[in-house]
Design a protein around this nucleic acid. Structure first.
Lengths: 246, 246
DNA sequence: TATTTTTAGTGTCGAAATAACACTTATTTT
DNA sequence: AAAATAAGTGTTATTTCGACACTAAAAATA
């Protein structure tokens, strides 16, 4: 025990004159309900801003990386492991948290909303909000959400990340609604299916989804080999690239 | 004085149970010498890894934002203010610095090498290295450089950032060499000049650059209004997008 | 059981963008 | 005067993109 202590003391504070900072991660969690994009928010449980809407976040602990911290926090809220989670940006303004200077690294997650909506932890009073009806958020979380929206659009225009929002089996009309929702536009369905199918990323299944229409639409699933191979070179669905900012 | 002290004590440690971390920024500084891309490295002046090649970096101080810290550090080394500087990624593995856990936010800078090569601070024993001949670097700086290379390619394929590497007046052959260097490819010069001129971003000047050739090439400068207006919708020079990763 | 309603699914053609390709011009050097 | 060097420029074929309308399947309804 004394050994452990002295070891840790030895290891600590070698850069002894430097200031140490609070470090947090915040997660912008996107889901798709079949019609529009949503994000998951929580009611903050402690001061300051207790009771106000907030991104799910938390402090980075001593012995975890940022990626580990963001995964831990995502799991705390949703019970989910192993979903798409990508570092977005680190927000480091000195006064972004009024209590004490805190630097926060924002991550965005893309999850299949249906798979998890029932297993949300109740501890956080989480709710899904339409992306177009996000309430006022604490601190600079609004800015984080805006940055995440820009990033998801930018990236989805070039890479097939939106499949992460869909279940393993999905129909082409579902996929089209998703793209139209993300880019806030409409796409001709003949051109859409032509281009999507031309990527070689989709495998047509025998079964149909009967829920969405009378006739039923064929299910597809991702060809995972092609998915990884072609992740970099995907479609360019940008309707007007002027609206996209990294 | 007692008032200031008590104020700062009041403000400090409101999140009293949370671990505080060392925070650093590291800068990947790109330059272009007219033929190939280079990056600026320093000889690290303190332990650990004293004397080894490193990115220019430093700890984030109490009352500065990350953006301020990166600008400060860039200026310390190069004397430069107001150049292109963009946050790249935050590296947060727990053991990336063997002395003490340090989270580092990497920034990349694009500078006009000729304008500043003489005013480098001598304090850091900085040297420009060909991007293809970067020496072994400390910690995870190699990884940072790789990420910066990917980002600059990715972004330059869609946005006119490479002009930041050129002087205010440049020729089309110079610009072409720059693009060929960044994308490690060759481009037909007829197609290149057609597309570049079609953007409307360039203003042709009366004077010629006589240094590069016997005949001389016309100087151009950026049309700054169009530059900002068209920043989002630029050329797509990606030779094979497969090689690009965000 | 026939009709209506609803959404899925598919092909063509003109326009625009892209990629391939070679010669002339200006200037300096020899 | 001739040779060497790099700048500058146009055309054509190919590919990609965008616009556009009807038929098919199944359920609901009359």
């Amino acid at each position: 025990m004394p050994l452990t202590l002295s070891k840790s003391l030895l290891k600590m504070h070698k850069y002894s004159k430097q200031t140490r900072h609070l470090l947090a991660v915040d997660c912008i969690i996107f889901g798709f309900d079949g019609e529009t994009l949503k994000i998951l928010l929580i009611k903050r449980g402690f001061e300051p801003e207790k009771g106000n809407w907030s991104l799910m976040g938390g402090f980075v602990e001593q012995n975890e990386s940022l990626d580990q911290a963001s995964n831990r926090i995502l799991k705390q809220l949703t019970g989910i492991d192993g979903v798409y989670l990508e570092q977005l940006h680190t927000f480091g303004d000195t006064n972004r948290d009024p209590i004490e200077r805190t630097v926060s690294t924002a991550y965005f997650a893309l999850i299949d909303i249906h798979q998890y909506e029932t297993q949300l932890s109740n501890d956080y009073h989480a709710e899904w909000f339409l992306l177009k009806q996000v309430p006022k958020l604490i601190f600079d979380h609004q800015e984080m959400v805006e940055a995440a929206k820009r990033r998801i659009r930018y990236k989805a225009a070039l890479h097939p990340i939106l499949f992460e929002l869909l279940p393993a089996r999905f129909t082409i009309p579902q996929l089209q609604i998703l793209y139209e929702s993300v880019f806030n536009t409409t796409i001709d369905k003949r051109n859409f299916s032509k281009r999507v199918l031309a990527t070689g990323l989709l495998i047509k299944l025998a079964e149909k989804d009967k829920a969405g229409s009378k006739r039923g639409a064929y299910y597809y699933q991702l060809n995972m080999q092609n998915y990884y191979a072609k992740f970099q070179a995907f479609l360019n669905f940008i309707p007007n690239p002027d609206t996209l900012i990294l």
